[in-house]
Every structure is written in structure tokens, then in C-alpha cells.
Computed example of a mutant assay.
Amino acid sequence: MKTIQYLAALALVASTGAMAQFAPSSAVKISSVFPTGSGPDVVARVVAEKLQGRWGQPVIVDAKPGGAGAVAINGMKGAAPTGNDLVVVDVGNLSINPLIFKKLSYDPQADLVPVALLYKTAFFVAVAADSPFKTYKDLMAAAAHKNAPLRYGSNAVGGPIHLGSARLETAMGTEMLHVPYRETSQLYAAVATGEIHWAYGSVATAGGLVRGNRLRFLAVADTRRSPAMPEVPTLEEAGGPKGLDALTWVALMAPKGTPAHVVADINKAVNDALSQNDVKEKMASFGFAISTGPAQQVADLMSADRANYADVLKRVKVSID
């Protein structure tokens, strides 16, 4: 009798475990706040291909840039919380926008639930290849002159590059002139031609211009050197502020109300995809650092960076209607 009861219990556990597995019976749609062909978009498609092979269902990446992420997020947030609708976003959408938009059409905490971190990437201090600033200390010395403030740029007012640069400006104890551009390509073209003195850039966004001898990286705003460009010193190694970083990250989110077991299963599937050698090689080519782990790490990053940027915004006044 006890044997029969034991076997029945095992069968129940096995049945429950099988029911808990996320196995979509129809296509999975991943909306993206990023334009087609951008680094995050490429990563999303690489991961989607792996998920499609795992689940046996189409996994479609739908690029919907615009509205500071609102177009993609609002198009997904009201979907049924089954795991079939996801969205790829970054630190700006989750931690910065709630601080700078007077009327934000979505609430990252009320409308979304973290699923998985896709990657982190650090920003480098980029100057023109023929810039007179040969080292980061040269840049610091020039920034100390009050008569002719240095000009730095960003691709969006209130974005990670703008606010990250403002943090560095404060840490250096200087005042510089911020020049915003509409597109990333315009920003780095302005650095390369000397229209502005420097800008933060990643391997994915500015690395091509470095390899093409149009830009030069003086330092990386991280606590350790980038494996993609190990010859570039950290800010601290270059004589800059200690313990200061400028990182951005990209995550996968689901509609609020998505069951915890579904989130956990998708999280595992994404982590498994990111751990495959061909994916790791692709990510490394972009300078993206994979950080596999539970969905909680996304929630932790959201909270920590919201506090960090709130501190920056006490000095850099940014408000968008």
C-alpha cells in the first residue's frame, strides 16, 4: 500500500513539474524599443533564434523604436500574461524615464515584470583620432580651464550617455557644455571631426570608428578593463575618479501578472541561449558582457540605477513633457 502511495506521489510531482514548464503552443513575439540592426536588436534576434529552436514555435522580434520606448512597451504591456509577449528594453526605459518624463505612459514597476538580463556594456571616453588629448589626464587638464569649457555630446537629453557624462563631469569638478544630437551616428561624427571634444561610446556604437582610425578611446568607465579592448585603461588607471562607472544594460521584460514559473522558465531558456559558445562570441564582438542569473538581478539594477540617476538629476535639471 505504501509503495502504491509513494508511486502515486511521484506521479503527481512529475505531472505538476511538467505542467509548470513553459511550452508555448503559438508564436512568441518580442517587441523591441531598438531600431533594426542596432546592437540590442541583433542580440534579441540571436537569442530569439535559440528560443525558437528550443520551443519549436516561431519567436519573432518586432522592432518598434520611438517615443523613448513607449511605442514598444505600450504595445506589449496590455497583452495576456502568458509568456507569449515580451519586450526588450534598457536602463533608460526602466530607470531614467520615470525620473525625467512628467507624463510617462507606462510604469516600469506596475506594468512590467523582469524576465532576464541580456547584457551589460561599459562606456568609453572617446575623442577624435587626431585629438590633442592623447590621454585622459590631458582631457582633465583641458577641462579645468574655465575660459573655454569643453564640449561633450550625447544622443538623447536625459539618456544614459548624457547623464553618465554628467556624473563624470561632476566627479572631475569641472563644468562642460552638453551638446545633444538626434542620432548616435551624428554624435560620433561630431567627435571625429572635432565639433565636440569627447563623448561616451561603447564598443558596439563607436568601436568601428576606433578601428577605422577616426576615434580613439582614452579610458573605459568601469572597474575593470573591457575584454574587447584590453589595451584601454579604466578611468581610475588613467588618473580619473575612483569607483566611477558608466554602464548601460538591456533586459527582457514581460507583462505584469505573468506567472512566476513562466518567468523562471523563460529566464532559464534565455540564460541557456546566452551560454552557448556562438552567442558568447557574438556578444564579445560587440563588447557586451553576459551576466546570466535570475530575473531578480534586473529588478536590482532597476532600483540601483534609479537611485544613481536621481542623484545626478539633482544637478542636471532634465524634465520632458
Rank of each mutant, 00 (worst) to 15 (best):
A72K: 01
E175R: 03
P180K: 08
G173D: 03
A192H: 12
E281L: 15
A44C: 02
G257E: 12
A156L: 12
V28N: 10
D85C: 11
A264F: 06
T16P: 10
I73K: 06
H178F: 15
L163D: 04
V318L: 04
G56L: 13
P230E: 14
A18Q: 13
A246W: 03
R182N: 15
I4A: 10
V125M: 03
R306G: 10
L112Y: 02
F101V: 04
T234Y: 02
N308D: 13
E49F: 05
Q296F: 12
G39L: 00
K50W: 03
K120M: 14
V191H: 01
G92V: 12
R306H: 06
S105T: 15
G207E: 05
W249V: 03
T292C: 05
G164K: 00
A189Y: 03
S38H: 00
K282H: 15
A63F: 03
K134Y: 02
G173T: 11
L139N: 13
A27I: 07
G159P: 05
A72E: 08
L150G: 09
N271C: 12
T184W: 06
D222G: 11
P24W: 14
Q109S: 14
T135I: 04
V203N: 08
V33R: 05
Y106F: 15
A156K: 13
N213R: 13
L112M: 04
D85N: 15
N147M: 07
E237I: 10
L118C: 02
Y119N: 11
Q5W: 08
P81M: 15
A260E: 15
I100P: 02
R54L: 09
K314A: 12
L244H: 09
S154Y: 07
G164D: 08
L112P: 01
A246H: 10
D85F: 13
L209H: 10
A70I: 08
D272A: 15
T82Q: 02
M229A: 09
V113L: 11
D111V: 14
G69C: 12
A251H: 11
V279E: 14
G207L: 03
G239D: 00
K268E: 14
V232H: 02
V113I: 13
F133G: 11
A70N: 11
G212E: 12
P233W: 05
D62S: 09
F288K: 14
E237V: 06
P132L: 08
A142C: 00
R315N: 14
E237G: 11
S275T: 05
F288P: 06
L168A: 01
V91Y: 07
V262I: 11
V191I: 05
V316R: 09
A190P: 03
L301S: 00
T82E: 12
T292W: 14
L235K: 01
L117P: 12
A246D: 07
G243Q: 11
E281P: 02
L7G: 12
M229H: 11
P65F: 08
K137W: 01
T82H: 15
R151V: 04
A9F: 09
V59W: 04
S38P: 10
R224S: 12
S202K: 08
